[in-house]
């Protein structure tokens, strides 16, 4: 940018036109906010009246929204949730690494890599198609039945293994989709600088690919977080199982609602965090513009 000869910056005063324009924009923004607020309030009010006015509401309220049982369930559910969180973090880390490895393997070119490529493809085909619940049952009950020396029978570890098997196949496909959206010209540019194939992948292709697939990856991680509840079929006490125990004891469904809300509360900060990351990335890499 060339530096102007005379600094007329101190002399700039907004014109009447600009002031009028900005006033108009403010009015428009106020009107839009008002419309949004009113429609939200009206919708909420209608929903509230429809639900609380329904004939079965008093009974439903007692069975699903009882403050007494909510208070009783919350500490136990939170205790159980700690298991879900640990499973989510540990499995999530392993899944990301494994998924990335499988994805990269699937994109390797050349006949030398055929066996690896075929193996990776077969893995993805199999575990993506296999219902998670069946995978879990096979691993959690099948592996201990083998009575192998030195192999764990801990339902949490086995359940986590099943989650890793299934989810790494999903995540591998997400990564591969990301890798394939990177334009070939990027690869050409990197190779022309003398970067080797793996270096091109590591420094140029993967960083772009990963950024592009952050939202679908997050989707899979949230899904994983909820599916950690399935390890309870092996007997581990997680948030869902903890709620289950109370429901079974008192025939009141409030603990389920509590467990559900706790899961929702857990995913929201994660979503906001990724939104923030993606927005920051976008701001840094592109110039401004109104469209």
């Amino acid at each position: 940018m060339t530096v102007p000869d005379l600094s007329d910056e101190d002399m700039y005063r907004p014109s009447a036109r600009r002031i009028e324009r900005e006033r108009h924009k403010r009015t428009r923004a106020r009107r839009a906010t008002a419309i949004a607020t009113i429609s939200t309030v009206v919708t909420a009010a209608v929903l509230f009246l429809v639900v609380t006015g329904s004939p079965g509401w008093p009974a439903t309220k007692k069975a699903f929204f009882s403050a007494h049982y909510a208070r009783m369930a919350l500490p136990k559910v939170i205790d159980g949730l700690w298991l879900n969180i640990r499973l989510m973090v540990i499995c999530g880390a392993i899944i990301l690494v494994l998924g990335m490895l499988i994805a990269v393997t699937r994109t390797l070119r050349g006949p030398v890599f055929f066996p690896l490529r075929a193996l990776a493809t077969a893995y993805v085909d199999f575990f993506r198609g296999l219902p998670l619940i069946i995978c879990l049952l096979m691993v959690v009950f099948g592996v201990p039945a083998l009575r192998l020396q030195g192999v764990t029978v801990n339902p949490v570890i086995l359940g986590g293994t099943a989650l890793v098997l299934t989810y790494s196949a999903y995540v591998a496909e997400v990564f591969r989709a990301g890798i394939e959206t990177v334009h070939p010209s990027q690869r050409a540019a990197a190779r022309s600088l003398g970067l080797s194939g793996p270096q091109t992948m590591r420094f140029v292709v993967l960083p772009q690919a990963v950024r592009r697939v952050v939202p679908p990856l997050l989707n899979d991680l949230v899904s994983l977080q909820k599916d950690t509840g399935l390890v309870s079929i092996g007997g581990a006490v997680d948030a869902v199982h903890a709620a289950d125990i109370i429901v079974g004891k008192y025939f009141n469904y409030t603990p389920y609602v509590v467990a559900g809300l706790v899961f929702v509360a857990l995913t929201i900060p994660m979503t906001r965090f990724t939104d923030w990351i993606t927005a920051r990335m976008y701001r840094r890499q592109s110039q401004g513009g109104t469209v």
């Binding site: 014109s15 036109r17 600009r18 324009r21 924009k25 428009r28 513009g289 109104t290 469209v291």
Partner: peptide
Amino acid sequence: LEEIDDGAIFLDGDEITDP
């Protein structure tokens, strides 16, 4: 494609920078 801060732009005599 960019919003101007001040002044006006006219296309065929009609102001296009009016919000």
